[in-house]
């Protein structure tokens, strides 16, 4: 399904989501593995992931020991998770393009100059404070993505939804997320068919400019978006009718969430306390 249109489509976004979807489908095998991290309740994992990401944001730039301690905690969990550490470390580079924006920190923060580059008429001075801020942002981003990857590679999506419900997300939003996840892949297939249809009707020689003005191309794409909307809408009408015929009344019923065991509560409290201590030490020591 992926290889069909990887070649023809010029453009970052389409290819990006192709790879993103391929990545997501290839995270699925890891969800079924057995490890202490997999066995842990998704509510605990979600809460600890959020706490870890928050702790990373709270560590001031330049406190490398604090960052290293948080990284050690995270990597300890990754090593126990039966999900290859290489996989998570590699895939965590997904936010790398955005890191370019952080590069500007290196020469806009005031501080002692480290290197002065002068490409052409420009003069760029990299400062020590700027460099520290830049490296800190990159490391924080990298570690945060790893934490999110670990959560999603060791929990089923439905478990994460249940955890979000327990955290107080309105049931309407939880239900919408569940539906969106269920039909995401169906509609992406639909979009792929639209793209393939356009591709097969738009011959182009390699290296040659394809026809039409930008406005015309946008109009074609707008037509495709409108068509996709109509197909999605009509599909949702069929789904709704099928649900009504099975007794759907607009209410969402689920089994009540079981209370956390004392072991899980202990892990949650210990983890949160450790992270809080690291942040506290980073600020005041």
């Amino acid at each position: 399904m992926w290889h069909c249109f990887q070649r023809g489509l010029a453009g970052s976004s389409g290819e990006r989501y192709n790879t993103a979807m391929a990545l997501a489908s290839s995270l699925d095998p890891y969800v079924d593995r057995a490890s202490p991290v997999h066995a842990l309740d998704a509510r605990v994992k979600l809460a600890l992931t959020l706490a870890l990401v928050l702790a990373l944001a709270l560590v001031p730039a330049g406190r490398w020991l604090a960052l290293a301690t948080i990284a050690a905690l995270l990597w300890w969990a990754i090593l126990r998770s039966a999900v290859g550490p290489g996989l998570i470390l590699r895939r965590a580079f997904i936010a790398a393009p955005f890191a370019l924006a952080a590069m500007t920190l290196a020469f806009t923060r005031p501080g002692a100059p480290v290197v002065t580059l002068s490409p052409g008429p420009l003069t760029i001075t990299i400062t020590d404070a700027g460099l520290v801020a830049f490296v800190a942002v990159i490391l924080k981003t990298w570690l945060s993505v790893q934490a999110a990857l670990l959560l999603m590679a060791t929990s089923r999506f439905t478990e994460v939804l249940g955890a979000l419900r327990s955290l107080g997300l309105p049931s309407m939003l939880v239900a919408m997320l569940g539906f969106a996840y269920r039909y995401l892949f169906v509609l992406v297939d639909e979009a792929e068919r639209l793209l393939r249809a356009r591709e097969s009707r738009a011959a182009a020689l390699p290296g040659r400019r394809t026809g039409g003005t930008i406005a015309w191309r946008a109009e074609v794409l707008g037509g495709m978006v409108g068509t996709l909307f109509l197909r999605a809408y009509e599909r949702s009408e069929r789904i709704h009718a099928a649900m009504l015929s099975r007794g759907y009344t607009g209410e969402w019923r689920s089994l009540p969430a079981r209370p956390l065991t004392s072991g899980e509560q202990g892990l949650l409290i210990t983890g949160a306390a450790l992270l809080a201590a690291i942040v506290w030490l980073a600020h005041w020591r």
Binding site: N18, L184, V188, A191, L228
Partner: peptide, 8 residues
């Protein structure tokens, strides 16, 4: 989500 995949 799917519409964001469509591009030109």
């Amino acid at each position: 989500f799917a519409a964001q995949m469509l591009n030109f």
